[in-house]
Design a protein around this nucleic acid. Sequence first.
DNA 1: CACGAACCTGAGGGTGCCCTCGATTTCGTA
DNA 2: TACGAAATCGAGGGCACCCTCAGGTTCGTG
Lengths: 206, 206
Amino acid sequence: MPSISYHPEVAADSKPLRADAARNRANLLAAATEVFAARGLDAPLEQIARRAGVSIGTLYAHFPSREAFVDAIFPERLAVLDRIAERSLADPDPWSGFVGFLEGLFALQSEDHGLNDAVARRLPNAREVAEVCHRGGLHAERIVARAKASGQLRADFELGDLATLTWAMSQVIRESMDTAPNAWRRCLAFLTDGLRAEAARTPAGS
Amino acid sequence: MPSISYHPEVAADSKPLRADAARNRANLLAAATEVFAARGLDAPLEQIARRAGVSIGTLYAHFPSREAFVDAIFPERLAVLDRIAERSLADPDPWSGFVGFLEGLFALQSEDHGLNDAVARRLPNAREVAEVCHRGGLHAERIVARAKASGQLRADFELGDLATLTWAMSQVIRESMDTAPNAWRRCLAFLTDGLRAEAARTPAGS
DNA sequence: CACGAACCTGAGGGTGCCCTCGATTTCGTA
DNA sequence: TACGAAATCGAGGGCACCCTCAGGTTCGTG
């Protein structure tokens, strides 16, 4: 349960930070957000420190690992997923809810190299992110079940296929984001058209 | 233009190699093939040298760059693509030819991490590979055109979408190859079902 | 078999990134 | 303002990989 806030003024965990420390922490988070967005999750940490106007030592004092950054930055942004899922479940048409969920997820990923990596990659030590993804999975389960029950989503679609689709789309997004930011939509259109029950011709074996 | 043979006994280019050099070169190629297959194109070259029973210096004497390896190894294996394309064009049913081409391509990629990387990645300095891919593209153009002309492939599918699909599938293959070697087939089934003209519901915008 | 050319070796310098830790500065309080 | 705790700094050691080159070895021919 995320009791940690990285907004220093609200810091609930342990001692409050000294003023300079709080400022640096905030700068680091902002810098990390920008750098990850531009270069992906594997960007050198020293670049983040430089952009934050802080030494590499200070960076490590605040965030002992790359995953600590990830965990501090992305859960908040990924919280949108809950909204998207709720909206999808609220959609009177289960199919358009399902498609809307996928579109929302991938649109989110396509905004930001870092976010795209965070969603598509296994990050065992980023607990907060894992937690958000788990929540997303629970929502997805209901969305998928509803679309299947309505007879619109093909019956041989399984929950695990969502992970596969995410891998697939994450790569499309990664490769095209900087040159053709909407290319992934074409791919998704093909895919979702193939996921309709009435389109199912090729049985998906296990 | 591939006048170079990396089978020393047939070496046509320039001077013939000394016996030990020829042996080493063959060992290096075998080692590189194995290592690339297991670890992908970014595997450390020193690992290849070690497996070939040769020093790193010797490796560089034979293959001055990683791309030289790629160019020496993969064109031969990618030549299968020509066969696959021919078989697809020979198929009386344009649609099943089209699908067969995709299946053949991805099945090839799924055999080998290195091959998967070679197909999915831009390798500007691997001329031989680029050449093979270019040939593949020409074949693909006819296969796509035929499938579209027959009214079976959706009309808004474009040649460039093939590259996108390749990116997508390469990632699925990469992530699942070692744990679920056939997972990509499910994904491809969804995709191809969505590529049929009669399945087209969501227009693919540019 | 002896000699030179061809070939091989591996230590070592370069790069880029990771992360630590003792010295130094800054903050906030008394 | 002066003091100690808190925070910062950045040089530097590690690591993994890249690539080179001077010196030793092997081949194959005369």
